[in-house]
Design a protein around this nucleic acid. Structure first.
Lengths: 136, 136
DNA sequence: CTCTATATGTGCAACACACATATAGATACA
DNA sequence: TGTATCTATATGTGTGTTGCACATATAGAG
């Protein structure tokens, strides 16, 4: 046999550029990009509370996850950072969105919209199933 | 230090009963439960094509993933199976939804709906951000 | 007897994530 | 001066899910 399904199917492994679609799970990345875009948060620690307020990421987000996402985004050139030693407290790493980051957010928006619509359609169909079961 | 954020925060780890929310990832499980509920598919191989048609799972689903999900569901009592040797070809394992499985699908529906709404809200807000950027 | 389609399954590596922990500056207060 | 707390960033690790490749088995077509 040959595998039954997707022989070529294109999706090689999401190496290098990492397609956004492959990271839907917790949606931390788009949330972070959005917060940087609006200026609601510019460093990791602030995002912690803001991301949790957004609701996009369902449960409470781990601080470690935020910092790792920011690092990964910087490696890809989606954000740039510099240390901010002004103000009291420990130094904070200030992040800013680049054009790459804005483009990335835009493609996230498309992906999330499609997925959300598919999910709502699923919810509808599943509810129909429940009703059919009751009336039988 | 103490952890900074969520000390108590309840979410112990999703042991034992596995809360549905923690498995949002590819949404294979709810898709499978739904297909069993409607009778559109009763064994793994059929689900492969049906699941992919549904769109819930974004990309094409791996057969291995389907079989593993079915196994896990059976361990939890959400489905029961028996071998079907009638008909030509290799034996197929026929699955049926239990009450536990129906309840599980119902709780998936709630989780997915909430998530999908949060996602659409995010999409809206992000689009507003883009428009604000254009007009400045 | 081989080829193909159907069907189920496993081993492995890569990865995302939750949880825990480490480090350290700043501030309050006893 | 000591110590507790808050702010802030970061790493280490175990677990679960996934993609991919591979293994296996039955049956029908030629």
């Amino acid at each position: 046999m040959r595998r039954g399904r997707g022989r070529g199917r294109g999706r090689k492994r999401a190496v290098m550029q990492q397609e956004v679609a492959s990271r839907l799970s917790r949606l931390i990345e788009p949330a972070v990009l959005y917060l940087l875009g609006t200026g609601q948060a510019s460093h990791g620690y602030d995002m912690l509370s803001e991301v949790n307020k957004m609701g996009l990421t369902d449960a409470e987000v781990d601080p470690g996850a935020i910092y790792r996402v920011l690092r990964a985004l910087e490696e890809e050139g989606a954000v740039v950072s510099d240390w901010d030693t002004s103000g009291g407290g420990p130094a904070r790493r200030n992040y800013e969105l680049t054009d790459i980051g804005r483009a990335r957010l835009a493609s996230w928006v498309e992906v999330i919209e499609r997925r959300a619509e598919a999910m709502l359609e699923f919810v509808e169909r599943a509810r129909e199933l429940f009703e059919a079961e009751i009336h039988e």
